Amino acid sequence: MGVTGGSCPFGLWHVHMVWSGDLVMQVRFLREPAEGPAHPAFLRYLAGNPDALAGLSSVATEGDSVYARIYRAVRAIPYGRTATYGEIAAAAGTVPRVVGNAMRTNPTPLVVPCHRVVAKGGIGGFTPSIEMKRALLSMESRKG
């Protein structure tokens, strides 16, 4: 199966994705749309379907690096819930700062739902905008 790419809107942003079959290789948030249709699972997820991304896998979770362990722990956070950087660090056998670095470089956000990782005392960060993190968490809290 070949590599496919496309995008769909979410608020003021466009979610760009690159995939082959059920393996997602990249997800980015940009202001402009990409050529090509979005993967149907992303459309269902952004419409509020809690199970839409469950059948997809991410290149980020492959292997046994500390980042792969972190990404697998983040994938285990249920839809509509959050976990702290410290909780993910404990699950992956590392420290919160490393979790923050992994979240910042996550190649497949949404599939590895880094927006569900929050600071002990607040929402934490998110690229491209904290408003998008709030919108994703709000969407999930209504349906989760």
Rank of each mutant, 00 (worst) to 15 (best):
G2H: 12
G2P: 15
T4Q: 15
G5Q: 15
S7T: 12
C8Y: 05
C8T: 13
P9H: 10
G11S: 08
H14Q: 15
H14I: 14
H14F: 15
H16E: 14
M17N: 14
V18E: 14
V18F: 09
W19M: 13
S20P: 12
S20H: 14
S20W: 11
S20C: 13
G21W: 12
G21F: 05
D22Q: 13
D22Y: 12
V24L: 06
Q26G: 07
V27T: 07
V27Y: 05
F29W: 12
L30G: 15
R31A: 14
E32N: 15
A34R: 14
A34P: 07
E35A: 13
E35V: 13
E35Q: 12
G36L: 13
G36H: 12
P37F: 09
A38T: 11
H39R: 14
P40Y: 10
P40R: 09
F42I: 13
F42V: 12
Y45N: 09
Y45S: 04
Y45M: 04
L46R: 06
A47F: 05
G48P: 00
G48R: 06
N49I: 07
D51T: 08
D51H: 11
D51Y: 09
A54W: 09
A54Y: 06
L56F: 09
S57Y: 15
S57W: 14
S58N: 03
S58L: 07
E62H: 13
D64W: 09
V66E: 05
A68C: 08
R69K: 11
I70V: 10
I70W: 12
I70K: 05
I70S: 03
Y71S: 05
Y71P: 08
A73I: 04
A73D: 04
A73W: 03
A73N: 06
V74K: 06
V74Y: 09
V74I: 15
R75L: 12
R75Y: 13
I77A: 00
P78A: 10
Y79S: 03
Y79R: 10
Y79C: 03
Y79V: 07
G80P: 02
G80R: 02
R81M: 08
T82F: 03
T82G: 01
T82I: 12
T84E: 00
Y85S: 03
E87S: 06
E87K: 01
I88N: 01
A90S: 07
A90I: 00
A92R: 03
A92H: 07
A92D: 02
V95P: 00
P96L: 00
R97L: 06
R97I: 06
R97Y: 10
V98I: 13
V99T: 02
G100K: 00
G100I: 02
N101G: 08
N101I: 10
A102T: 02
A102K: 04
M103W: 01
T105F: 15
T105W: 12
N106E: 07
N106W: 08
T108P: 07
T108F: 10
P109E: 08
L110T: 05
V112H: 06
C114L: 03
H115T: 04
H115A: 05
H115E: 01
H115G: 01
R116Q: 01
V118W: 01
V118K: 01
V118R: 01
A119E: 01
K120W: 02
K120M: 04
G121A: 08
I123T: 05
G125W: 02
G125F: 02
F126I: 10
T127V: 03
P128Q: 04
S129H: 07
I130A: 02
I130V: 12
R134A: 07
S138A: 15
R142K: 15
R142S: 13
R142V: 14
G144R: 05
